[in-house]
């Protein structure tokens, strides 16, 4: 631990402030685009829920395409968490391993590796929702 501390004094500190600003702007732009898409769908007569679902679909598909064209990794490098936290980042984390393991075949390559990054998010996301659901159910019984 002592050496780790000593070694840390030699490395450059990440640029926290500028990284935060970049992440804020990048994430904001993605959400803004999502909102415009949703408004577009609302204007053609969809209800709130359907328009929201379709906006998500469009964002996910766009992020997948951008990953395929080799653009999303550059956006991710610039935008950091701003590009990985929105649903577009999730789409990227599914498509990136799928592309990486294409040569290993459709079943044992893409099939088994596609969720190597997104899998833990899905599993733990579900587990958390179960836990929250359980707490809500218990609270409803008590009160």
């Amino acid at each position: 631990m002592k050496f780790q501390k000593y070694a840390n004094s030699f490395k450059d500190r990440p640029k926290y402030v500028s990284n935060c600003i970049k992440a804020f702007v990048a994430g904001g732009i993605i959400c803004l685009i999502g909102h415009f898409i949703k408004d577009g769908f609302l204007s053609i007569g969809m209800n709130q829920e359907t328009a929201g679902t379709w906006a998500t679909v469009v964002l996910v598909c766009t992020a997948q395409l951008l990953t395929g064209f080799g653009v999303y990794d550059i956006l991710g490098k610039l935008g950091g968490a701003g590009c990985s936290v929105p649903i577009t980042g999730f789409a990227n984390s599914v498509v990136a391993p799928a592309m990486e393991y294409k040569r290993e075949g459709p079943v044992l390559g893409v099939g088994s590796k596609i969720f190597s990054l997104a899998g833990p998010v899905i599993l733990l996301g579900l587990a958390t929702s179960w836990a929250v659901g359980l707490i809500k159910w218990v609270l409803q019984i008590i009160f």
């Binding site: 490395k11 450059d12 500190r13 990227n92 498509v95 391993p97 592309m99 990486e100 990054l117």
Partner: peptide, 17 residues
């Protein structure tokens, strides 16, 4: 990169070190 770290197309930031 593929063996030790992330897929090439994954959008992430590498630390300065």
């Amino acid at each position: 990169e593929r063996q030790f770290r992330m897929p090439l197309e994954h959008g992430n930031q590498r630390p300065p070190q």
